[in-house]
Simulated assay, not measured.
Amino acid sequence: MDSTPRGAAVTAAGFGVKGPRGWAFRSIDIAAAPGSLIAVQGPSGSGRTCLLLALTGRMKSAEGTAEVAGLPLPKKIAAVRSVTALAHVPGVAELDPALTVGEHLRERALLQGRFGGSLRALLRPRRERRAEARALVDAALEAAGLDLESLPKGIRTSVRDLERLEALRLSVALALIGGPRLLAVDDTDLKLSDDERRQVWAMLRALAAAGTTVLAVCSEPPEGGEEAEDVVLVRTGRSGAAPDGAASDGAAQSTSVQSTSVQSTSVRNAAAQNAAVQNEMDDDEEGAADALAETGRA
């Protein structure tokens, strides 16, 4: 493990994940320093979520190499999970619409206190443990930009009553309670207005600037695109796929950000966008489910 106190360095070379129905993604190269904002851009079905899950130790890779905080994947996959956290990942890290904001926060703080600390920490007086939990929650809410007083019923607001941006902020806050070195956020700009997207990227940039490495899946890159000096941009896309579902050596897209070459070979054949292929793998969430099932983590 590297000696960076907060953010985790992320590197990958020829990285790929394959499920029962073919490649989710392959040939991904990344070099991001601790505290970087990594934006994974691509259309639905291009392996964005699979890449996010693989780099956080939730999915086994099939080719290439990758390291997170100096921990090689998949050899140290459990250790990688311990220094990373997921937010807003459909089917994997979701909010329960039946619970309130306060119930979510209390549950996460309880889990963090029970399993996230040392035995010595568990033996401290209850008052000290409660004060520490409140401090963790308050810091996470502030970092995520979620103002409880602005919610319809404050901390008693049900998740089902949250706006999309509020739900995303809550999901990020819950993930931050664990103090991850790498925070991975899925669907950062899904169904958000232009102003809401700007708010989300401002939040993620602030988290990265404070030291936490952020990996964010998006349909469109943050303002500045490839020219943004504070963003490492990774693109996923579609390329040739064999009839049996195996990916071909389609053309790779590439970009350079902060002297970092990031290129990706996509996993679908643009000419095969018919019902048969969509039944094989309609989107990246389905690909993620396939690969998770194969590794016994579904």
Rank of each mutant, 00 (worst) to 15 (best):
Lys153Thr: 06
Ala293Gly: 01
Leu119Arg: 10
Pro97Lys: 02
Leu136Tyr: 04
Ala202Thr: 09
Phe15Cys: 11
Ala206Pro: 06
Arg164Asn: 06
Arg108Trp: 07
Gly145Arg: 07
Ala209Lys: 09
Leu170Arg: 06
Val101His: 07
Val262Thr: 14
Met59Glu: 12
Gly154Thr: 13
Leu52Val: 08
Leu151Thr: 11
Gln278Thr: 03
Gly91Cys: 07
Ser150Met: 02
Thr236Asn: 11
Thr49Tyr: 05
Asp282Ala: 13
Leu146Cys: 05
Val232Ile: 15
Leu111Gly: 08
Arg106Phe: 07
Gln199Leu: 07
Arg114Ile: 05
Asp230Phe: 05
Ala140Ser: 12
Ser261Val: 14
Val172Thr: 13
Leu174Gln: 08
Leu110Glu: 13
Ala272Asp: 13
Arg198His: 05
Gly45Val: 03
Ala9Val: 01
Arg58Pro: 00
Asp29Ile: 05
Glu107His: 12
Ala78Asp: 13
Glu285Lys: 00
Ile77Gly: 01
Leu105Val: 02
Ser3Cys: 01
Val68Gly: 00
Ala54Leu: 12
Ile177His: 04
Leu165Thr: 12
Val231Ser: 02
Leu110Ala: 13
Asp195Glu: 13
Asp282Ile: 06
Thr213Gln: 03
Asp186Gly: 05
Ala173Pro: 12
Thr213Cys: 03
Pro180Asp: 07
Leu162Cys: 03
Pro20Met: 06
Gln258Ile: 00
Ala175Trp: 14
Arg81Val: 02
Ser27Asp: 15
Asp290Ser: 04
Ala216Phe: 03
Arg238Trp: 14
Ala289Trp: 06
Gly179His: 00
Ser256Asn: 10
Ala251Lys: 10
Ser248His: 05
Gly22Lys: 10
Val89Ser: 03
Ala202Cys: 00
Gly7Cys: 09
Val214Ile: 12
Arg21Gly: 03
Lys18Cys: 14
Ser82Gly: 04
Asp187His: 11
Ile77Ser: 08
Asp290Glu: 14
Thr295Gln: 15
Ala12Phe: 03
Arg129Tyr: 08
Gly211Tyr: 03
Val214Tyr: 03
Ala202Ile: 00
Arg124Glu: 14
Val217Trp: 00
Ala275Gln: 14
His104Asn: 04
Ala62Glu: 14
Ser248Met: 12
Leu122Trp: 14
Arg205Cys: 04
Asn269Pro: 05
Leu190Val: 07
Val80Leu: 02
Glu142Ser: 15
Ala252Lys: 13
Asp283Asn: 15
Val40Tyr: 00
Val214Gly: 05
Arg130Ser: 12
Ser118Glu: 04
Gly178Arg: 11
Pro125Cys: 10
Thr157Gln: 07
Pro221Phe: 04
Leu215Cys: 07
Val137Phe: 10
Ala79Lys: 04
Glu149His: 13
Leu192Cys: 03
Gly154Tyr: 06
Val80Ala: 07
Val267Glu: 12
Ala242Lys: 08
Gly57Trp: 03
Ala93Met: 09
Arg235Tyr: 06
Leu190His: 02
